[in-house]
């Protein structure tokens, strides 16, 4: 409100020249990249029409990024089948990995030295060797353990046995390798989450008579989730792409399907791009999912949750509209 009834004062915002220039440069670079992505290349061939002497010829062109070929293969059953396998590997390996990780984290924090040392050794081994090597090892496990059996340890008594070759077909070998490797990483993430929970929370839970297990399940883990979720989201996204290593042991997931096709028709780049676009698509889906899960587990720790992308977009739109409304300004008491 103005004190003397005058019209509201106009506010002149600070001009950020540097921001405008750097913004312009960024825009230029983006425009150049987009232009090359959607540009065409001459093929070296010519297309002619009409008879001499009025014959018209022009150079033939094709998409630099072979968009037509990508579009053709994008939804073929072989690629789609591969995509399903990629998702299956990712979801199963992560699910098993998270369970292993939580168990290992609790073991690591156990007062029992043998348990914590076991968990430490597991993490040491599975983090210390490349996941690619682990996939190859599980695929060839029958060389060292030809037969797996269930029976009395250190005797020949067995109730059930299975040959390692049948048990570890390519898909299962890849799944086991990815899951066990993930377990090692998840255990560190879960451990960081658990130790981030304030000691006072555990004392308060004990004081009302909750058992150690109830305290862990009802008080510690739900609060640790806030710390565990963001890196776990990263792990899922990373797993989506790491699962492509399974193609090395002839699992026909997204990349495997793409290489199968291009080894027959030599359309290497379009098929690699097809695979890349599928990976990008699922990464986008997973990242947006991660945002909402994080928001859910942050309840109670933030006074107001961060805005969703839609809310932010609406807010930005209102802000930009406001910039163009020149009469809008703060009212200053004079």
């Amino acid at each position: 409100m103005t004190t003397n009834g005058d019209a509201p004062l106009k506010v002149v915002p600070v001009r950020h020249i540097g921001r405008w220039i750097s913004g312009g440069v960024a825009l230029l670079v983006i425009a150049m990249i987009v232009h090359t992505i959607f540009s065409k290349l001459p093929t070296g061939q010519y297309a002619c029409s009409g008879a001499k002497p009025n014959r018209l010829c022009h150079a033939k062109t094709e998409w630099r990024f072979s968009w037509d070929i990508i579009r053709h293969y994008f939804f073929t059953s072989e690629i789609l089948h591969g995509v399903v396998l990629t998702l299956l590997l990712t979801v199963l390996a992560m699910a098993i990995g998270i369970v292993i990780g939580l168990v290992l984290a609790v073991m690591r924090l156990s007062p029992n030295r043998l348990l914590s040392a076991t968990a430490w050794t597991y993490t040491w081994f599975f983090r210390g060797t490349p996941v690619y090597v682990q996939i190859l090892l599980w695929y060839n496990i029958s060389a060292i353990y030809p037969q797996l059996s269930l029976g009395v340890p250190f005797t020949s008594i067995a109730f059930w046995h299975v040959s390692a070759v049948t048990l570890f077909d390519p898909f299962r070998a890849a799944l086991v390798a990815l899951a066990l490797n993930e377990g090692a990483y998840m255990s560190e993430i879960a451990r960081a989450g658990i130790i981030s929970v304030d000691e006072g929370q555990i004392e308060a839970a004990s004081a009302i008579g909750l058992t150690r297990r109830q305290t862990l399940g009802l008080v510690v883990v739900p609060q640790a989730m806030r710390v565990i979720i963001p890196p776990t989201g990263n792990e899922i996204i990373s797993m989506l792409k790491t699962s492509s290593l399974a193609s090395a042991i002839s699992v026909v997931e997204t990349l495997g399907a793409a290489t199968n096709i291009y080894s027959a028709n030599y359309e290497v780049i379009p098929l690699l791009l097809t695979a890349s676009l599928w990976y990008l698509f699922w990464t986008t889906v997973l990242s947006s999912g991660q945002f909402y899960v994080e928001r859910y587990f942050a309840r109670g720790s933030l006074r107001s949750p961060p805005p969703t992308p839609l809310q932010r977009l609406r807010h930005d739109a209102i802000g930009i509209a406001g910039k163009f409304r020149t009469t809008r300004g703060l009212e200053v008491a004079r």
Binding site: D198, G200, Q201, E203, A204, A205, S206, A207, I208, G209, L210, T211, L218, V219, P222, Q223, R226, F297, R299, G300, S301
Partner: peptide, 29 residues
């Protein structure tokens, strides 16, 4: 735990369960 459940304790730093609402804090135990 059975012994403790009969003794109430109030802490200097409150130690309310941060992920639960006020009502849930009181109903959990």
């Amino acid at each position: 735990c059975a012994e403790r459940s009969q003794i109430g304790m109030v802490f200097q730093r409150f130690n309310l369960f941060a992920h639960l609402t006020v009502l849930e804090n009181i109903t959990l135990g």
